[in-house]
């Protein structure tokens, strides 16, 4: 019988705490895990690519003409909003991954390791930025193939992408809360999508706010999905109406408002999520 050596010859000195740099490194290691998961199962990317492709095609060719007179103009108007909406749906994968870790005991294993207490959560959120970036590139790519034209320049487009990712990073805290509260990963889907559907559809993603009844406009105007969509439109299409039948405003106000919304979401949902997580584990 050979002994499995598990004890080091001399006990190393134990460190009393984790340095923030180590914490960042540990978070990145945990984020690497998600990248490997995608590499093993590229179909997972396919899973959340199929629906947005269908949506872009459906709205452009089926509804576009009826809504905007011609589908080319509608594509210009709708695509920035579609990018926003789809990216918000993709943030729900944070909830699913976190919930899987919690229910399968992986989270316990991670917490029993001498790593920063915040690293498992930060790693999860950071990793999902890759999926969110993919969702932006995917919808944008489909749009470009179908004839979507950038009215500004590469700079404007990059600012839009960074703004979207920053917003997604903040919005991930909502997803964290869903992941903690849901009983199992299947329920995350139902829970997340039920909450996201009305918020994303009752916005100016598909149609301009002015076409809705007044009482609904009040909600649509303050809806962060509308504001972020407006910011993306302005950053991608420019101040002037570029091929859309409707006016696109300037980028400044919606960009600032989007950032205020993002900050507000973090301020409310980050403490709430951490509190819920502490109660659960």
């Amino acid at each position: 019988m050979t002994a499995i050596t598990a004890t080091p010859p001399s006990a190393p000195a134990l460190s009393p705490r984790v340095s923030p740099i180590d914490g960042v490194r540990q978070s990145l290691t945990l984020a690497w895990r998600t990248i490997v998961q995608v590499r093993h199962n590229p179909w997972e990317l396919g899973d959340f690519s199929f629906q947005p492709i269908m949506f872009v095609l459906l709205f452009t060719f089926v509804f576009g003409g009826a809504i905007a007179g011609d589908w080319q103009g509608y594509l210009q108007f709708m695509l920035p909003g579609m990018i926003t909406m789809n990216m918000l749906f993709v943030t729900m994968y944070v909830a699913q991954g976190l919930n899987t870790d919690l229910t399968k005991g992986v989270f316990d294993r991670l917490r029993s390791l001498p790593i920063a207490r915040w690293a498992p959560l930060a790693g999860r959120i950071a990793a999902d930025q890759v999926k969110q970036a993919w969702s932006i590139v995917l919808v944008l790519g489909i749009g470009l193939i179908m004839g979507f034209r950038i009215g500004t320049n590469v700079g404007g487009l990059l600012v839009a992408i960074v703004l979207l990712l920053v917003f997604a990073l903040c919005f991930s805290w909502v997803s964290v809360l869903v992941g903690v509260l849901a009983r199992d990963p299947e329920r995350v889907q139902i829970f997340g999508f039920t909450a996201l559907f009305p918020v994303t559809f009752v916005s100016n993603v598909f149609v301009p706010t002015e076409t809705m009844p007044g009482w609904l406009q009040a909600f649509v105007k303050v809806n962060p999905v509308s504001i972020l969509s407006d910011a993306c439109r302005a950053l991608m299409l420019g101040d002037k109406t570029v091929g859309t039948p409707w006016h696109v405003g300037s980028a400044g106000p919606p960009v600032v408002q989007s950032l205020i919304w993002a900050a507000a979401i973090v301020l409310v949902f980050a403490p709430l999520s951490v509190w819920a997580l502490k109660r659960k584990i």
Binding site: A6, L14, S15, Q26, T29, L30, W32, R33, V36, Q37, H40, N41, K104, G105, V106, D108, R109, L110, S112, L113, P114, I115, A119
Partner: peptide
Amino acid sequence: RQLIGLTGQYASVDETLTGTENLLLIGRLL
């Protein structure tokens, strides 16, 4: 936490990773 190893009642390995990757993940975290 630097002294202990924990093996839970519910095998807490990441199902989507390979055996090597699971062990590599822990090693890198440590």
